[in-house]
Simulated assay, not measured.
Amino acid sequence: MNVTLKQLKAFVVVAQQESFMAACELLHISQPALSIAIKNLETEVGGALFSRTTRAVVLTPEGQRFLPTAKRLLQDWDDAFIDLSQAFTLEHGILSIAAMPSFASSLVPSYLKRFRNEFPDVKIKLHDVVAEDAVQMVIDDQVELALVFEVPDVPQLDFIPLFEDKFVAAIPPALAQDCTEHFSWAQLLESPLIALQQPSTIRAQIEALLDEQGLAFDVEFEANQLATIGQMVASGLGVSAVPSLCTPLFEAQGAKCVPLQSPPLMRRVGIVTQQRKPLSVAAQSFIGQLVEKYG
């Protein structure tokens, strides 16, 4: 069926005005053009929508049933373009992002507050999941972007670096009483070591550095969430090496975080998006704010 928007508008206006002449004035078209539009519509639907007399134009029963539907279709058409326009101007829209918990609980809230202050009508969906899951959510089109540590080269992903994060030693309160202002990796490994379970890119990076230094990576406790490791360290089970982004979370749990040196270990933090996939205006604006902040 090939019904046009012009035909729908013509039908609704004629029905409301009960006059072809009045409808022509409102639609700014000639009477022959209006008559053709109505005739073509009636041909498409398979029957008369109006009963024409010398005195009036009235709807047939079929036309009466169709009128509410035609009005709704025109309103939906207008609403769709209003919604689209508002999305482009950020008067409306959705920002859907994923962030690893250490980032989501530290810096991300301030980013979102700044964005929301500028664009108060954009809805925000934040998924705080482990870094590997955050990246997978981008790949699976569940979110437009992820705020994570730099990932190994993945053909379908782009990485926009924001800043470098240094690893720190997370130590229990009892050990913190006797510690200096920083730890070496050798000092850290004198205590029971707590680490993320495999596969973990954080763990892999630590293992690679210790291998270069000729130090044994002997893990006594494992967990799959950094927050859990923070609790384990705070309870005195052992020590850990974590990104400094975790410092607020770990210290709120009772652990102590001090710089790790000899040598320092750093990792880039940034934004992961899909290659060759257009981003919404909301996502583009959010990324622009972050790049401006760290540029």
Rank of each mutant, 00 (worst) to 15 (best):
I38M: 09
A283P: 00
L279A: 01
A146H: 05
M100C: 14
S35R: 12
L112D: 04
A176W: 05
F20E: 06
Q187Y: 03
R267K: 14
I38G: 15
F163Q: 09
Q16R: 05
L226T: 11
I287S: 07
F286K: 02
E91G: 11
V291I: 08
I271D: 09
L107N: 15
Q75K: 10
R72C: 13
W77Y: 15
I124Y: 07
F159E: 11
F103V: 14
T4Y: 08
V13N: 00
Q198S: 13
S30G: 08
P192L: 07
L67C: 07
L147I: 08
A37Q: 08
E91W: 10
I287P: 02
P264Q: 03
P101D: 13
Q136P: 10
S240C: 06
Q225V: 02
S200G: 09
I38K: 04
P61C: 03
I229G: 03
Q205A: 11
M1T: 10
K125E: 15
A10C: 06
E132L: 12
F163N: 01
P243E: 01
A282S: 06
F221H: 09
E181H: 04
Q289R: 05
A255S: 10
Q187P: 06
L90R: 03
A98N: 12
G93M: 15
P199K: 02
L59V: 03
A98W: 08
D78E: 13
A223H: 07
V269A: 14
V108M: 13
V151W: 10
I38T: 09
D83R: 09
V45Y: 08
T69Q: 15
S85T: 10
A80S: 15
L67I: 10
I82N: 13
A216D: 07
L67F: 06
H182S: 09
A252T: 01
A186P: 09
T89Y: 13
H92Y: 12
R268V: 13
F119L: 14
F286A: 02
L157W: 08
Y111K: 02
S184M: 04
L95R: 07
A170F: 10
S105K: 15
Q284N: 12
P263S: 06
E144G: 10
A241R: 01
G63V: 09
Q205F: 02
L90Q: 04
V258W: 01
C257Q: 05
M232P: 01
L260W: 07
Q17S: 08
E62I: 00
V269Y: 06
K256H: 14
F20S: 07
L189W: 04
L49I: 05
A80F: 12
F250I: 06
W185Y: 03
L107C: 14
A70F: 12
V219I: 00
K113P: 00
S191P: 00
A252I: 10
L59K: 12
I38N: 02
P109K: 06
E292D: 11
Q142L: 11
K9I: 05
K9N: 14
G295V: 02
I29E: 05
V12G: 14
Q289N: 02
S184Y: 05
A252Q: 13
R72E: 15
V242Q: 08
V45L: 08
C24Y: 04
T228L: 13
L237A: 04
H92S: 14
A204P: 01
A70R: 12
P68G: 13
E150Q: 15
T180C: 00
H182C: 02
F11N: 09
P32M: 03
A134H: 11
F149G: 14
L237F: 04
F20N: 07
A23Y: 06
E212T: 00
T273I: 07
L226F: 06
